[in-house]
């Protein structure tokens, strides 16, 4: 059971310090742990190159290689984005909106997750079905960016 206090609605008033810390803590944890995971994925991909793994470098694996690289790149950048969001919330409390938080976290899962699954189950030149998660993640990221942008644009 979570003991976190629910974050208040931030439509009219800025959240309290406790609520801010909950959001900050959540995004710092998500950001740094996912950064570790996606950097590890990058290391695995480097290893595949080093040992010239046929599942990664042979002809016919171009789609897998592309999608796994995209998963690594998006995962790493979105991890850093979540860390940046946590620091943004500390600096500008109006950015701490539940919709922004939920969108950025969802994009952190959906975007690289979609690329990863699409790459693992790629067939010839086509990605696996997991790639269908990517557009959803992209929309979540867009929503998050807009909400954060609006939040930081408000006067404190």
């Amino acid at each position: 059971m979570s003991t976190e206090p629910p974050p208040p609605s931030l439509r009219e008033t800025p959240p309290g310090r406790d609520a801010i810390e909950v959001v900050v803590g959540r995004h710092l944890r998500a950001g740094w742990w996912s950064l570790a995971a996606f950097v590890a994925l990058g290391a695995v991909l480097e290893l595949f190159h080093a040992i010239k793994s046929p599942v990664y470098v042979d002809a016919g694996r171009e789609t897998t290689r592309l999608l796994l690289r995209l998963a690594h790149a998006h995962g790493t950048l979105l991890s850093l984005l979540n860390v940046a969001y946590a620091l943004t919330v500390r600096a500008r409390v109006h950015a701490a909106r539940p919709l922004a938080s939920a969108s950025l976290l969802a994009s952190l899962v959906l975007l690289p997750g979609g690329f990863l699954l699409g790459g693992i189950w790629a067939r010839g030149g086509d990605p696996g079905l997991g790639v269908l998660l990517v557009p959803a993640g992209a929309v979540a990221l867009l929503v998050g960016a807009i909400v954060v942008g609006r939040g930081v644009s408000r006067r404190e």
Partner: peptide
Amino acid sequence: AIGGVVVIAGAIVVRAMRG
């Protein structure tokens, strides 16, 4: 695997937006 990712994303959204 796809279902798992969707469930995780959904759980995150629900948790982040309580209230």
